[in-house]
Design a protein around this nucleic acid. Structure first.
Lengths: 411, 411
DNA sequence: CAACATTAATTTGGACGCCAAATTTAATTT
DNA sequence: AAATTAAATTTGGCGTCCAAATTAATGTTG
């Protein structure tokens, strides 16, 4: 049970519903919002009037023309999210790089920046300071003056603690416990959130309607690392501290191959780019892991070698597939998902690893658990982490705006 | 987002809140309900008046005396759930046995019955028929006349499909796809629900406040089989088809020991009673699994042998602990729970298996994921499945009653 | 033992939300 | 210009909640 309900809850929920509808379906007429939400025209008038007054949405006269096709009656007035209502910054922390994006309330990216930062050479405190410094620079460079900054969201690889807003362990750092949200919130005075990068991919898929709003979908990311975002009934599951879906560091073989996390036998040590490369080169499985990402060209060359019949390469991809397959089989037994979505650069080699994945699942998952299971590949190869981070931030901003009951009263 | 909100939603949610409060805290005065729910006295008066008129709750004059201790002012009137409001039947299906319980709306068990049925020798259809027959007999034996039967809930081991209300695979049956809820619903005309037995243990723990209403708790059951119920934010997670938490049939070692589910390498093949027994007796790991439960005496003898230093027995329990520990480690990586509760007869041997469990977790779970993790043992050894099934049924009945908006209008 | 104090529960009056139905608005068609 | 059509708004009513006033039931006290 969610707690007591009153008229305030009703208004907030319905305002949120209207905002979500506009975000999901794009600019829409009041009639359409009514049809999509199930709310009466009278209510839509009231709610949209408030949102217009607050500046969250705007009339889109520019879209009126489209309707003119023998359409009689009073023409519709399209309403859309007010792009200028607020701005957000999405930051992606990777090894050696900070990636910035500035987006407006409509979700459009207004500016980007990549900053080289020696993440693995800085202390926790120095990194926090540097992060604030670079963010201030990004804000200055893009003159967010009259436009208000409303939210900063950060995505990082590894184990993130999104309660305390710190990175527990990440390949990007040599140190642990790097504070992220605290310093940013202090410096900018806006809500800041830290999250795992794979979970942000899942957020992006939800926003793009690539994931159903019911049931359980596991969004697996394969590439330099292996990650997973779990979507349960349309919402990303974050776990207790925010680090659910550490699929890559789920144990595959006890005391097995060395992983860059320092442990042995993680799935990632067999199925990530560096794991595949290591086994293709017949290196001992305790060969130290590279601290930098494997160049795509190297992986593409290895894939092509495998396709030409290079036995070492073939075996390496097969090993990777078996690891992922067994990991998925274990996940399926635990969670009984209805859908698995594979994404990331690693899917480029899907032809080489998929048979082993399917074989492992068939071998170790009970038939009733897999008979209705859909496994599919997301063709989108580009980096979806920033996009998903923006989507998550927008959702939080909607939730902030919808709760603006007090602000209305104050005004 | 959950859809549009209106005054109907408000009333339903607050009625449900009042019912849940009474179920959770026992009979309470209106003032106390107000304090616990956050609703105003005026609202409590209105809601309780309706519930009294509908017969869902009753005044408990018998509890008035307890207050008399120098208490001034108008005495409280305790309200409690009306035990006679409705009745439910909980059924537990195990190998060779149907276990029945009749409970009232207050959760008190009014009658029990155990019926021997050759579950593994019947066809799917024959079992369905027999189930209806035995249930009819149970109803007749307990003369549920003026008292109305409102709900039938069934718990079964194995893979349950609670969407279609059929058992996919279970050690209780030789066949698969045994229809449960359909035949019962047809025969009795009341809502019927099928669920996995481990999930019902989790339901029981929630009702007994043994599980927090926030965060993620994994309730592991160890005994003849190995099961798990996942509680996320106070609600049992059932997965897509209702078979989440097949922890026992999560793969432990590929192509490993034979499991009674017919596959190889399941965790259960190493950590369940029969698995432990098999390895203690140094039998080949493809020795066919018994189709009946291992006698508790046999396991107790084995535990004592291990405690006396019998190396085979010690090794067998250690192997079991390692299997459970590694399984938990994998689950932790995926789900980042804040609490793990171990229960079931298997916890009797916890002294023998716990070191191996902890070792496996420490070896293969990243530190940030386990630093705030609590692992505890539930002393309750008795069979909690029937209790949990009753609790789940009561919750469904509350939800049915709270929705009784229409009934009120009709009346 | 009657007036007072205290606490529980109800009643009253008002606010806010939603909706149905009537009305207004802005276009096309005739 | 009048009729038609469809979107959006306004009006009036209903249901929910809450705060404050009132009533109810008991213990305390002079």
């Amino acid at each position: 049970m969610r707690g007591k309900a009153d008229s305030d809850l009703v208004r907030r929920q319905n305002r949120m519903l209207v905002l979500e509808t506009l975000r999901f379906h794009g600019p829409s007429a009041r009639v359409d919002i009514g049809r999509l939400t199930g709310l009466s025209p009278a209510t839509i008038t009231t709610i949209t009037l408030q949102l217009l007054q607050e500046g969250a949405i705007v009339e889109r006269a520019d879209l009126a023309a489209t309707a003119g096709e023998g359409r009689r009656g009073r023409p519709v007035v399209s309403l859309g999210l007010n792009a200028e209502a607020a701005f957000l910054i999405a930051i992606k922390i990777s090894i050696g790089t900070l990636e910035y994006a500035l987006a407006d309330y409509a979700g459009q990216i207004r500016a980007r920046a990549n900053v080289t930062v020696p993440t693995r050479r800085l202390s926790a405190q120095d990194f926090s300071k540097r992060l604030v410094f670079e963010t201030q620079k990004f804000v200055r460079d893009n003159v967010i003056t009259r436009n208000q900054l409303a939210q900063i969201n950060v995505a990082a690889q590894g184990v993130t603690d999104n309660v305390n807003g710190a990175v527990g362990w990440s390949p990007a750092f040599r140190v642990s416990g790097v504070a992220i949200t605290g310093p940013l919130a202090d410096a900018f005075g806006v809500p800041c959130t830290l999250a795992n990068d794979a979970n942000m991919i899942a957020e992006g898929l939800i926003a793009r309607k690539a994931v159903a709003t019911h049931g359980t979908t596991a969004c697996v990311f394969m590439g330099y690392g292996i990650g997973m975002g779990l979507v349960i009934d349309g919402a990303v599951y974050h776990g207790t501290s925010g680090s659910s879906g550490e699929f890559g560091h789920m144990n595959h073989i006890p005391s097995g191959a060395l992983c860059r996390c320092g442990r042995r036998g993680c799935l990632e040590a067999y199925a990530s780019d560096y794991g595949i490369l290591r086994s293709a080169e017949n290196l001992p499985d305790d060969t130290p892991c590279p601290t930098h990402a494997v160049e795509p060209e190297v992986m593409i060359a290895l894939e092509n070698a495998a396709r030409r019949g290079d036995q070492n390469a073939v075996a390496a991809f097969k090993t990777a597939g078996a690891a992922i397959g067994l990991g998925l089989a274990r996940m399926i037994a635990l969670l009984n998902p209805d859908r698995i979505v594979l994404s990331g650069a690693g899917t480029r080699a899907l032809d080489l690893i998929e048979p082993a994945i399917r074989e492992a699942i068939e071998l170790s998952v009970a038939e009733p658990l897999r008979q209705n299971l859909v496994i599919e590949t997301l063709p989108i190869d580009r980096d979806m982490i920033i996009d998903g981070t923006i989507d998550a931030a927008l959702r939080q901003m909607d939730a902030g705006l919808y709760a603006t009951t007090q602000a209305m009263a104050a005004e």
